[in-house]
Design a protein around this nucleic acid. Structure first.
Lengths: 202, 202
DNA sequence: GCAAGGTAACTTACCCAAGGGTCACTTACG
DNA sequence: CGTAAGTGACCCTTGGGTAAGTTACCTTGC
């Protein structure tokens, strides 16, 4: 064995290393935003140097895209499954929250990537993020429409605004959760259920 | 007169120019975040060059701080006045929203500065922003506590979470508003009143 | 079993553009 | 004619990105 030798392979296969990099990248991009994140910092977290990131992901944009797709695919799929199950419009929000909390318990920054305001306004990232956002917004629009419709409101802009606020609520809850690592997914779900019952009387 | 002469004074007094720079800076910092914003872009918006920004505000950090203080002071004061007026806890959120919409109709990005995730974690900006956030959070905590308390909930973390979600709701509404420049402050207030009545039955 | 060599995993040392920041200088207003 | 308003041209650090070399693992042939 080589012990403290710095240069040369460390015996970690590519697939495994890529997973580590994606996890660290998601955290760092989620925390600091695309513009504020640094490739060397991500490499440092993994215990590796910058060129390896470029060898595996090509560029900062490439790494961000990989993180984004991993997060976005899991997120849209999870929400789609939950909403496809159908049910009472008033119970839908909590069901979606429960699914998100359970799925992203150990990957809490993933959600942040979809709504990162610091990505360049044009280019592949903006397109991909916009695509995922559109898909999630479509779900939110359906839910908001059903909810407001059942209350006799049908203004399209009202529905739009409510859907947008809903995604903001999810965002806030996840931010709060990130700051409290001890809080489990189940505890978050319980907390939300309790508060929604109290506030909405559902 | 000199017409197209580039160099030399343009006859705009310092105070006025500083206001223009603060307005442009608030927009650019709010849009792209501290990390993503560029001093030369802010200068370009004002129709001026970079060194003037440095002459008046010292540094990027200095300019951001000036924008932040302008926004934070107006915001905390407005909310304080509204909440000091007192009244039904269920009507408080709408009153606060109305005050924010009315005050920041022509300065919609101001709110974004307080919650910019791309500012360096330490330093004057983080301290100042944290201070403003704390003051606003204190108001939110009072409101959330009253609201949940009136429903029989007293868990401190529930109150904290609700207060955090509330600020997220404000954030979402402002983002949505920013994307719809035609929407007036009064229309926003009406929309929120309508939706809150429908959702909460207040 | 075991040398030989190919390849995958990794680093050191560098390039370069972007952007924060500065200096010397120029013009117009009072 | 002094001073405030303003610029062109520069420096320098930060950080994205790359080229070339180093080491360990893994076959392959004997």
């Amino acid at each position: 064995m080589t012990g403290s030798r710095a240069v040369g392979t460390k015996g970690v296969p590519r697939g495994e290393r890529e997973s580590q990099i994606l996890a660290a990248g998601t955290e760092e991009f989620g925390r600091a935003g695309y513009a504020g994140a640094s490739m060397v910092e991500i490499a440092r977290r993994v215990g590796v140097t910058k060129p390896l990131l470029y060898q595996y992901f090509g560029s900062k944009e490439g790494l961000y895209l990989a993180c984004l797709h991993r997060a976005g695919d899991r997120l849209t799929e999870g929400v789609a499954v939950t909403m496809a199950a159908g049910g009472d419009p008033e119970r839908m929000p909590l069901a979606v929250l429960a699914a998100i909390f359970a799925t992203f318990d150990h990957d809490r920054y993933a959600w942040k990537l979809l709504r990162d305001p610091t990505v360049p306004a044009t280019g592949d990232i903006a397109a991909a993020a916009g695509d995922y956002r559109e898909r999630l917004d479509a779900f939110a629009l359906v839910g908001a429409g059903q909810l407001l419709g059942s209350r006799g409101l049908s203004d399209a802009l009202d529905v739009e605004a409510l859907a947008h606020v809903w995604t903001g609520v999810v965002d806030s809850l996840i931010s709060w959760w990130i700051d409290r690592p001890g809080e489990t997914a189940a505890a978050m779900t319980d907390r939300c259920a309790r508060m929604m019952a109290a506030l909405f009387g559902w």
